[in-house]
Structures are given as C-alpha cells and as structure tokens.
Design a protein around this nucleic acid. Sequence first.
DNA 1: ATATAAATGGTAATGACTTTCATTTAGAAT
DNA 2: ATTCTAAATGAAAGTCATTACCATTTATAT
Lengths: 147, 147
Amino acid sequence: MNDKVSDLVDQMKRCGYKVTNQRELILKEFTEKGGHLSAQEVYENVRKVIPHISLTTIYRNIEMLIDIGVLCPVELASASDGSALYEINRIHDHHHHLVCTKCGKIIEFNMCLFQEIGKKLSSITQFKIDEHRLKVFGRCPKCQHGR
Amino acid sequence: MNDKVSDLVDQMKRCGYKVTNQRELILKEFTEKGGHLSAQEVYENVRKVIPHISLTTIYRNIEMLIDIGVLCPVELASASDGSALYEINRIHDHHHHLVCTKCGKIIEFNMCLFQEIGKKLSSITQFKIDEHRLKVFGRCPKCQHGR
DNA sequence: ATATAAATGGTAATGACTTTCATTTAGAAT
DNA sequence: ATTCTAAATGAAAGTCATTACCATTTATAT
C-alpha cells in the first residue's frame, strides 16, 4: 500500500469506516491511474485481484468516498457512454477540464478567472456561491481531422 | 402558433423534417416556458393537448431538434432526479448557469472571461476549442439557511 | 386522390445505478 | 485469543431515464 493510499485509508478510519481489501483496492485505483474513472472501470480493474467483488460494493464505496471528501464526481457526461466519472478530490488543486468531443480524452488545467465574476455574480443574485466548474470542449490534435 | 415557434418550424422544414402537431407543441413548450425542461416535463405538458402522445416521440424530437441546432442540453445533473434538461439554443446569446444546490433553481448570466483563457489553452494543448461551459453552484436567497 | 417515406405510439429492451436481504467480517470488548 | 456486533459485502431483484423495435398512421410530393 503506497503513501497516498494509506493517507486516504487513514482519512476513512478517522471518519469511522472500516478498512477492507475492497476499499483499499478501490482507493489504489484512483491514486494510481490518477484519473477519471467510471464505476465500471474500477470494477474491472479491482476484479483482477478480488474476482468475486460486487459492482454494488464499488458504487457504495464511491458514494462513501465522496461523502467524506476523498473523491468527487467529474460532472461530465463521459463522451460516449452515459456513465459518471470520478476522481480524487484535490481540494487545494483547483482545476478544470478540457474534453475532446471525439475520443473523450480529458486534459486538466488550472487557469481560472473566476474570482472577478464570482463577486459580481453573488452581489447581483444574492446567491451564496460555493463552487464553480469550467468545462471546455474541443478536438484534441489526433481528432482534428474530418469534422 | 406564435412567431418564435413558426421561426423554429421553418427551420425544421428547411432541414427536411415534416411538420406535425406533436413537433409544434414540443417547440411551443420550449419557447413559452423559456426554460430548462426535461423530456418528462415536456411530455406532461404536451399531453394536456395530445393525450395519446408517446414519451418516445418527445425523446426522438428533442434529439432531432438538437441535431438541427434548435435545442441544446443544459449539461447539469438536474439537482434532484438524474434526468437531462434542454433549452432553446440561443447561439448568439452566450450564457452560463448559476444553480441552487438545494432547490435546483437556475439563473442565467452572461459575464464571461473565457477569451483570454481560451487562447492560452489552445496554444498549450493544441486542441481546437469549440465550446465552453461555466457552471456555478451555490444557494439561492431562500435556501441559504441551515446549511 | 394516391403513393411513400417519414413520423408516431406502444411495448419491450437496455444500461447505469439502487435497494434488499442473507451472509461475512473488521475491529471493539472480553 | 475468542466472542460479539454493527458494519460491510455479494447476489439478485428493482428503478428509472433513455433507446430500439415494429406495426400503424400521416404529411407532403406527385
């Protein structure tokens, strides 16, 4: 179990959840691929180690990990299929996504000019603003040919 | 049939689609409520006029209307239930959404500082950028009490 | 009026996700 | 180390939005 995973396992413990092989492996998936994974993808990978794991367990634990702030949903209809994607919640690493509309490739970036808009917006609307997401769609270098 | 609807009907005709009562009424829903509607909501409203209309017809026509650029998906997991929302595609009226995470109320705004980011982003990533969406989440004045 | 491709309605299928419930297990208590 | 118990799991059935299929109807070109 690498450092990243054990940090997250600790966080889970502190929240009163038990440590299971299933949970460790799910966390391992998210830290290793560093990526944007669907429940199905996590399932298929973890299954190589625990063949009898249930997809239900994946869904349940992703939800739990979102509750305690370890994961967060990527909030994109993942290009082709309609399933949700999740990633490690890097709370101090504000970032947005650039998505290729052809192949689904996701690039992260952290340029952001939201502060200026945010203040105006909350004074005009009287909303308490908690969060924002910028999604940019385009075609990656490989997918630019033939509209 | 009001002006807005007949404009859109014309657009449909030009694209080679036939004009049916069902289609006219679906368009009417989107122009009148000016809003962010789910297939189910359109269905329930149109059913008051054509009680035998099929939900399938709603889905099919929403898809067709997206194809020809009349509608576009709002791209938000609609707060409570997981169904998609659609709106009239106002191509020259660039706007974004501020969503209340409690009651689902949506406010539109058009402040946007994307140009500056967009240029940098495409020169760094070599993506051809087509589109972007900014979504802001918060709590509306009514929903601000009791986290 | 007629022909015909397109549109519709009804029903069944799909697929992501959730619920249920009986069984297993992590970790606290002894 | 053993026992206990609530929490976690797995398997199967259930939801719910959306899609596919197919027989029937209809808009519109002729």
